[in-house]
Design a protein around this nucleic acid. Structure first.
Lengths: 144, 144
DNA sequence: ATTATTATTGAAACTTAATCGCAACAGGAG
DNA sequence: CTCCTGTTGCGATTAAGTTTCAATAATAAT
């Protein structure tokens, strides 16, 4: 358990960087929940839990955590970037409700097949992909 | 021809707003090319063509052009939003090269089927969707 | 046409996400 | 324990996008 924290520690060491308490606090806070997050929310959660980590440090460490392959940018909304966990989650896509903001993740094998065919047809080497479907969830949809 | 400009004019009128030369210049410049664009690039293109439209007016009009259904936000990159045409383009997805920035559009009927099934399973009402595949194009891929 | 109403414009100020410079601090190798 | 240098918090800075405001101009009414 805590695989993501160990992975990050190793990643940092192998890059010749330093494992600091601030880094530990940030990575632990990020993975203390399974949800998507943004910098401001993460900062408030840390603060609420007694951490003194600055926003600057969060902004400085997020690129490292991404490079380590533990999180990635998912969407830009309300004027800032939002992130999600990769570690412990297989590749997946999103259904996002425009009204209530709820996000449902889904996995579809057929999608992978399509992507591979498209990539093949274009001699394209896939590194990442993102499928987001936006609309209204079951609670928010208007009687259509 | 010029369907998008007429649509915008009608849209503006029916909202009780006013058709100004600035709006004409902006919408014409946007649709004078088939490519994706961002505000800064659009502003420079307008300026280059002798227009005196300000960036503020571009920022003010883009939401209207989106509401009119002619363009939409496609991705946030390099610190700012990028847009693409909807009018004249059917629903499509993107292959984006991380190295050279080239974007190839593709259409896939199977994808629509998958999306509809996912939406159905989640009682979700689809309003929009976006599938972006990032990686390396045929010119930029490393010998893998 | 003329006038009145009010949306729109450009310029500049402002807001805010994200980055950067700097001095103090601290991890970790030796 | 000491040194080297990466890291931190703070505050300043940058830049995208928004807003304020006075002047302008599109449209409807006259």
């Amino acid at each position: 358990m805590n695989g993501e924290i160990d992975l990050f520690r190793t990643f940092i060491s192998e890059k010749g960087l330093r494992n600091t308490p601030e880094r530990e606090e940030i990575i632990e806070e990020i993975f203390s929940s399974h949800n998507h997050f943004d910098v401001d929310e993460l900062y408030l959660r840390l603060k609420h839990n007694g951490s003194k980590v600055s926003k600057a440090s969060i902004y400085r460490n997020i690129p490292l955590i991404m490079e380590c392959g533990l999180i990635k940018e998912v969407w830009f909304e309300d004027g800032h970037m939002h992130y999600e966990h990769i570690y412990g989650h297989g590749p997946h896509c999103h259904l996002r409700c425009i009204r209530c903001g709820k996000v449902v993740e889904f996995v579809d094998q057929g999608l992978k097949t399509i992507e591979e065919r498209i990539a093949d047809e274009n001699e394209f080497q896939i590194i990442d992909h993102r499928l987001d479907i936006t609309g209204y969830c079951s609670q928010c949809r208007t009687g259509d």
